[in-house]
Write a protein that binds this DNA or RNA. Sequence first.
DNA 1: TTGTATAATACTGCATCCATAATTATGTAT
DNA 2: ATACATAATTATGGATGCAGTATTATACAA
Lengths: 222, 222
Amino acid sequence: MTHRIAPTALYQEVAERLRQRIFAHELPPGTWIDEQKLAEQYGISRTPLREALKVLASEGLVTLRPRRGCYVTEISAEDLDDIFPLMAMLEGRCAAEAVRRATRADVEGLEAIHETLEQSARDGRIDAFFEANQLFHRRIQELSGNRWMLSVIQDLRKVLKLSRLHSLSLEGRLQQSLDEHRTILAAIKAGQPSAAETAMHDHLLSGREALAKMQDAHAKAA
Amino acid sequence: MTHRIAPTALYQEVAERLRQRIFAHELPPGTWIDEQKLAEQYGISRTPLREALKVLASEGLVTLRPRRGCYVTEISAEDLDDIFPLMAMLEGRCAAEAVRRATRADVEGLEAIHETLEQSARDGRIDAFFEANQLFHRRIQELSGNRWMLSVIQDLRKVLKLSRLHSLSLEGRLQQSLDEHRTILAAIKAGQPSAAETAMHDHLLSGREALAKMQDAHAKAA
DNA sequence: TTGTATAATACTGCATCCATAATTATGTAT
DNA sequence: ATACATAATTATGGATGCAGTATTATACAA
């Protein structure tokens, strides 16, 4: 008899599926979410769907306008200007803390992740690069040992994913990103908390700059 | 004809009422939330109540265990050890940024708030002191001009409020808290960002220490 | 008396239904 | 033709009902 360890509720699964569709920009920012259409699509009633939307709303992925419906949140340039420095500070702190707490094995684990990053870059496998990148950052956050810090960062990262340009920009500066990662990893291996902190901090801000350039180019094209 | 500007949904009102009851420790951590009893109490159906619980869950105030019900979140000493340094960093940064952005009028507004804090302390009006304290912190966060920073901090503060000792500890160190506020304000008036930052930072950590002492005393009494 | 198995109870999760408000479509007057 | 008012439609918010599972109570055996 197999006992279900994680008896996830329907609304949770729906929330996750919607998250994926939002991140994939299949539901771009501004899109109105048609409850009954979606419910029908998923073969469920509106009740769990609406519960899922409440969750996504408190994550900031959708915006609920009472009596007006639910829309995928639109993120402004000002929001990005707010979020990136915040993330830079938080992830920077994580890196510093991670250096202080990481065991030998932990560092080796990070090196392994970084290696797949390098490999993905060489092979031009962008999606694999994305994934390894995410994992690298996340692992460092975990090593910092602060559950709440991790939760805050992950929440903010979700919001960043709303911006289509966010993923595109990474593509254009793959090599630079890789270099920055090397710097971060080097500081970690050398056991230098504050070097790791500034390296991570700058890495994030560099991401913001790349995104800003994307926006400029985008605006010019329009 | 008055047009309702903010047509707040029922689930939002319910969520707010529950928040208050949780913060007031009328529903202490660990309490099981009886859906139908509460729904009956509020004279509503379970549907909006359940939606409210979803919101509170993503705020971390309650924990939903699928098929098992909903419980007020219990916060551990480790959580506090995670959250306070995080808050110290965030609010510290806010203070620094606030100094850089505040106008003359802004600073005067802060002074006014601080004055009610002083007055409340003199009069021994603890609830008024609490309120002015909250306002002071919040105003600084607003002055920092970073909406997301503010949102993150407020979310974390909600979680802190789960700990009954949190409010009690402030009571015991009213004078010290006041002194620390004076230091913060002085740095702001002097236009010294980094002094304000460290003052605010230390103020938060000092709060954590006081809480730890409370916990020790509490443990000893038990 | 204690432990286990079974039955009764209670609660959660989801579906369906309905009232109300918002939106769109239609008609009329200027 | 355009603007406004009214009617029809549609979608949201909330209530109710029901199936399935967790929990508690009861009975029985060791």
